[in-house]
Structure formats: C-alpha cells, structure tokens
C-alpha cells in the first residue's frame, strides 16, 4: 500500500452535523492502517459562501502550509473542502505572485506547493486501491445503494477525480462491498440544493427531494454520499422536506465511509451510524 500517513482536514461540520462522517472516516483509515494526522489548528476552507477566490486561496494556503510542514498530503471527507483546498492548491502552485501575496499576509501562509489535496473517496479508490480494500473487507453488504456524488467529485474539470457526468468511484466501492447499485445515474451528480438551503430553501428542498425520490423509486435501501453538506440536505433536512412538501420519503442516507466501515467489519456505533437523522437500522440488518 502506497499511502500510510495523511494529513486530515475534517472541515467545520466534523464535530457537529457531520460528526458521523468524521467518526467513520477516522475509523476506516485506522482499520486500513493509514495514519491520519489532523491538520493542526485548521481553519475553514471558505465553503461556498466565500466568493472571493483570493480569500479562499489565502484561507486554504494556511491549511496546506500546515500539512506541508508535516510533509503530508492533505485528505478531507468533505467535497466542498476538497474543492477549495485543491483549487487553492492549483492556483498557488501555478502563480508565484499569488503565492508571494498570500505569504505577505502572514508567514504561516507560506505554502510551497509540495503537497496534494485529496478527497477520501479518491484515496480509497485510486490510492489505496480496490484490490487492497477488498482484501480487508470482512462483511458483505446486501444493500441496494443509490450512490450520490454531488457536485465536486466530477466537477469542475481541474479538481475532478471522476467523470463529470457518470462518476463511478463510489459505484465500484459499493459493488466491491457486495452492494447493488440501483438505477440512479441521472441523479448522481445533480446538485442537492445545499448552497441555497439558507437563502432559497424552497428550491433547495425541491432539489433534494428529487434526489431522494429517485433513490426511493429506484428501490434503494440507502443513499451513499461523500459530502457533509449533501448529508445535511438529504439526511438532516429530510424530515423538514417531508413536512414542507407533504411527502413521505424515509430514505436512509449514509456516508460512503460509513458503508466502507461496515464492510471492513467496524462496529456500527464506531461509525456513528446511530447518528444519522434517518434511521439506519434496516441497513445494518443487511450487513452479513
């Protein structure tokens, strides 16, 4: 195995709404024998709300610089964090002037462009590799899964690590775990509406519902995803959506790290599966 140690960037929701993702990520890496070193005193990546690119670059320069000092590539389970880290990484690497400007703000932002930023899914599929993962799996997931990728895994092209229209890294992982992929390709990369959650919740709810509905009518046991904002929309807000739109969905939504953890034989509790808003008990019953 090529990866043994990574800098871990948990992202802001990691101790709150996405604590389950944080727990499962840590547990899975541990099980896989990859050491995660949390980026010391990390700061927010800027999420979708910081529109000024240079501000994003500066914010992330700090995180990258910290990891760089450790000599470790940086990994995050959050798609937006990944996008911001990696696009900052690319911009900083390519532009000496920008790097100097950022460094001028504070010496702690002195980033030399020596490391990579990674999404956990990318690490699983492309760095650790399916073969390696397979060898460590002890459980089979008799699950029908709707793999939901959201925006930043296949888009935009420069940070993407999967196909923009038909990504399949999660599919492969799920199939490896013994899961069955339900027909879901049209929704795989459809935005969950998260960015409008606070300003146009009407639209956000409709968008999320479309994803949930599709998974449901495709017969999925659960939706798998890899981003805490998507998790918030599809899982956290699911009951609100049901109420607002007068529908009944009841679709479990889990992080891919949670599923992987199950396949690796990690205890459900350790993976935070009791913390998902929609009950996941039925899923657990299908892990054999």
């Amino acid at each position: 195995m090529s990866v043994t140690k990574l800098a871990y960037y948990p992202g802001c929701p990691s101790d709150a709404t996405a604590i389950d993702q944080d727990m499962s990520t840590k547990a899975v890496f541990e099980k896989l024998g990859v050491e995660l070193v949390e980026v010391e005193d990390w700061n927010c990546c800027g999420a979708a709300e910081v529109e000024e690119p240079e501000l994003v670059y500066a914010l992330n320069a700090r995180n990258l610089a910290i990891a760089e000092k450790e000599g470790l590539d940086i990994v995050t389970p959050c798609s937006i964090c990944y996008y911001n880290l990696e696009r900052s990484n690319i911009a900083l690497k390519a532009d000496d002037k920008l790097r100097a400007k950022v460094k001028g703000i504070d010496s702690s932002l002195d980033y030399n462009g020596k490391i990579k930023a990674k999404h956990v899914l990318d690490v699983f599929v492309n760095d650790i590799g399916l073969e390696e993962l397979s060898s460590k799996m002890s459980k089979k997931l008799n699950l029908k899964v709707a793999p939901y990728y959201g925006c930043y895994i296949g888009r935009p092209p420069e940070t993407a690590f999967d196909d923009p229209d038909d990504p399949d890294s999660m599919d492969k992982l799920i199939e490896l775990m013994g899961g069955e992929i339900v027909p879901f390709s049209q929704m795989k990369t459809f935005c969950c509406g998260g960015p409008l959650m606070m300003t146009r919740s009407d639209i956000a709810f409709e968008m999320a519902r479309k994803i949930l509905d599709t998974a449901k009518s495709a017969g999925a046991d659960c939706i798998a995803l890899a981003c805490p904002l998507c998790g918030m929309m599809l899982d956290g807000k699911q009951a609100d959506i049901e109420k607002a739109l007068h529908v009944e969905i009841d679709m479990p939504v889990v992080y891919i790290t949670q599923l992987l953890g199950l396949a690796l034989g990690i205890d459900a509790k350790e993976l935070g599966l009791n913390k998902n808003a929609v009950d996941t008990k039925e899923i657990l019953g299908k892990v054999v």
Binding site: C12, D15, D41, W42, N43, E52, E54, L55, Y57, A58, L59, R62, K101, G104, I105, D106, S108, L109
Partner: peptide, 19 residues
C-alpha cells in the same frame, strides 16, 4: 464557537483578501 487558535491571522487574511 469552535475557534482557531491563531485568530489574528484570520483577521489579517480577511483584511488583505476580503471584500
């Protein structure tokens, strides 16, 4: 709030790069 220890740098970043 979960706070970053080095909040001074945050301020600087926003001052330099923010709107």
């Amino acid at each position: 709030p979960e706070k970053v220890k080095d909040r001074a740098v945050m301020k600087k970043i926003f001052e330099e790069m923010g709107e």
